[in-house]
């Protein structure tokens, strides 16, 4: 059984973080590093607050790109996994190419995509689709492949068709792997969105980042970095809630768990 996290479990990392920020502030106060290179936490905080409305409008664009890219990535990943699982030959033919394609660094692809699809949302969304569909497809495929063959035989003995086996057995059985793939895809896709915005565009957190960098406003730079990781964290938290709702059987406790009947 999982242990319930106690308050001290959360206090320790929180205290560590606080100490880290304090040390940072101290370094700035004592002038060890000049202020224009490393802004103090207080200045970063102030920049975060004053720039918040502007950053939010950029964040909205980045979020839209991420959502659109993820949505298409899920659909594409799902279709790829389903086709590969159904037709063994397709899997054997495409799987190595798929893995190979992942060795191409995203940053290298982004300028090419901008060249092809101009400066709008399209190249960003395409980049996110390309990076996010892979972990989703692989997660689903592993999930499908991990289903107990006896379970499939039983369904067949009950005269279930391929689609019925998929709906009642394979898809729900692959959900845990699907969600772990999706979690990786979410963090990838926020990064991909920001990176592709660096290389060209008119709005988005990446564009904002380049602008403040060019004006040497390092306090704003730090503020936007914090915002980007906050966005990723929030998306992952949201995903955790969705996965709990989607898989209630994972959180119902076990027979030996609650009843006090130990083995």
């Amino acid at each position: 059984m999982k242990r319930r996290p106690s308050i001290t479990d959360k206090l320790i990392p929180l205290a560590a973080l606080l100490i880290l920020i304090l040390v940072w502030e101290l370094i700035c106060l004592l002038g060890i590093v000049p202020g224009y290179m490393l802004p103090s936490p207080v200045r970063v905080g102030a920049a975060f607050i004053s720039e918040f409305p502007l950053m939010m409008s950029h964040a909205w664009v980045t979020l839209c790109e991420t959502a659109a890219g993820l949505f298409l990535g899920i659909i594409l990943g799902f279709i790829t996994a389903a086709v590969m699982d159904t037709f063994g030959t397709v899997k054997r033919a495409l799987y190595p190419i798929l893995v190979l394609s992942q060795t191409i660094p995203t940053v290298a692809l982004a300028p090419l995509l901008i060249l092809w699809f101009s400066y709008g949302m399209a190249p960003k969304v395409i980049l996110i689709v390309l990076t996010s569909f892979f972990p989703i497809a692989v997660g689903l495929m592993d999930g499908f492949a991990g289903i107990d063959p006896d379970q499939i035989n039983l369904m067949r003995a009950m005269k279930a068709g391929k689609l019925q086996i998929f709906i009642h057995l394979k898809f729900p059985g692959a959900l845990p792997e699907f969600f772990s793939g999706l979690k990786i895809a979410v963090s990838y896709s926020v990064v991909s969105a920001v990176v592709s915005e660096w290389l060209g565009g008119t709005s988005g957190l990446g564009v904002y980042m380049i602008r403040v960098k060019k004006s040497y406003s390092y306090d704003k730079m730090f503020a936007v970095i914090i915002l980007v990781s906050a966005v990723s964290l929030m998306l992952i938290a949201l995903l955790n809630i969705i996965s709990r709702k989607a898989m209630p059987w994972k959180h119902c406790g076990s027979y030996n768990g609650g009843e006090g009947e130990s083995k």
Binding site: D148, D150, Q151, L154, R156, A157, M158, K159, H168, L169, P172, G173, L175, M247, W249
Partner: peptide
């Protein structure tokens, strides 16, 4: 041809998600 006889194994093979 399947679907004529009920079939049960040593493993109960209940679907955990249902």
């Amino acid at each position: 041809s399947t679907g004529h006889l009920s079939y049960m194994l040593q493993k109960d093979l209940l679907l955990e998600h249902k």
